[in-house]
């Protein structure tokens, strides 16, 4: 999508199937780069990317940094503690300050939904959403699609259950859209207290009974259970949650041999997933992390370096295209 003349990645909803396939194909190329003895290409040499992380993140941040370095981009970190927000600088002043230093792209994570979209309204740089509140986490969605397709091939008609705290999950919102866009059947599984108040317009089915769907799944996608939900009385106890909605060993045994177990991390072993299950061969959780770097290379390259090798501009489609 375009705002202010620049191209951004703000939401999975901005990408159609062609866009996603384009990104996944390119991800494959960059995954090969990652396997070289010197896993680095000059694709974004001279480009500057700023990290604007209003919310703590180690994994996503490291993944983006690794991706940027492998593309030879320059990076800078605008250190934002939550306290500096309280000190009163408006989000707009912050982004204008960073933009004044001369950047080509900015990767934004914020605890407030929509903040990356606001940043995109206020700057000419390309904006990549690295997670905004409960709203979207599109690069997570893309890396999950890449991981799933690399094992299962075409996702048309494949059945994925996204299990757990859908209501507060940006990963769930990105994946519900992303997997449905790629033709998969998406079932949301969780207690009513952890589902969004309305699912009007969502391309999904819903059940409160994980056992009702477990045998049929091609992918069992488990969400991190925020431990504070118990305090908010969204679930009575974590023990009960594990019993009703956790991927226990018994449930994992019922999954088909080819079915994938996925999780965005970090895991609460023993809560949403039995400790032993996370280490089974069909659990691709660390693979998701590895693919994250390649996906983010693809996204950074498409937004900041389109027109250069290794893809030609005409191949850059749809929502990420130069309009």
């Amino acid at each position: 999508m375009r705002r202010n003349g620049a191209r951004h990645l703000l939401s999975m909803a901005d990408l159609d199937r062609d866009d996603i396939e384009q990104i996944l194909n390119l991800t494959g190329s960059f995954a090969e780069v990652g396997e070289r003895s010197i896993p680095k290409v000059p694709a974004l040499r001279g480009k500057t990317i700023a990290w604007l992380f209003y919310e703590d993140s180690t994994r996503t941040r490291l993944s983006f940094e690794t991706a940027a370095k492998r593309l030879s981009a320059d990076t800078m970190n605008f250190s934002v503690s939550s306290s500096s927000v309280n000190k009163g600088e408006s989000l707009r002043d912050t982004i204008e300050t960073i933009a004044a230093m001369g950047i080509d792209g900015v990767v934004v994570r914020h605890r407030a939904a929509g903040a990356p979209q606001q940043v995109a309204d206020w700057t000419d740089a390309a904006v990549i959403n690295a997670g905004d509140g409960w709203h979207q986490h599109p690069t997570q969605g893309l890396l999950d699609l890449y991981t799933a397709t690399s094992h299962l091939g075409d996702l048309d008609g494949k059945h994925i259950a996204i299990v757990g705290d859908i209501k507060h999950s940006r990963v769930a919102r990105s994946n519900a859209i992303g997997f449905a866009t790629m033709g998969a059947r998406v079932t949301l599984v969780g207690p009513p207290t952890l589902l969004p108040p309305s699912l009007d317009g969502w391309p999904v089915e819903v059940t409160h009974d994980l056992d009702a769907v477990i045998d049929d799944l091609d992918i069992c996608y488990l969400l991190r259970m925020q431990l504070e939900r118990q305090k908010q009385a969204a679930v009575p106890t974590l023990r009960e949650y594990h019993h009703e909605y956790g991927l226990t060993s018994a449930r994992a045994d019922r999954l088909g041999a080819e079915a994938l177990i996925m999780h965005p991390g970090p895991m609460n072993r023993g809560v949403e997933i039995a400790g032993e299950v996370a280490d089974r061969p069909n659990a691709v959780i660390t693979e998701q992390v590895a693919n994250g770097v390649s996906v983010r290379m693809a996204v950074l390259f498409l937004l900041l370096g389109a027109g250069r090798e290794p893809v030609d501009e005409s191949a850059v489609g749809g929502g990420l295209a130069v309009a």
């Binding site: 939904a113 929509g114 905004d132 509140g133 409960w134 709203h135 979207q136 940006r170 919102r173 969004p196 108040p197 309305s198 699912l199 009007d200 317009g201 969502w202």
Partner: peptide
């Protein structure tokens, strides 16, 4: 407002 749009946008709502 809590409803279709708050759910889609991941925004805490007021019913």
């Amino acid at each position: 407002h809590e409803g279709e749009w708050s759910s889609r946008l991941g925004m805490p709502g007021q019913p």
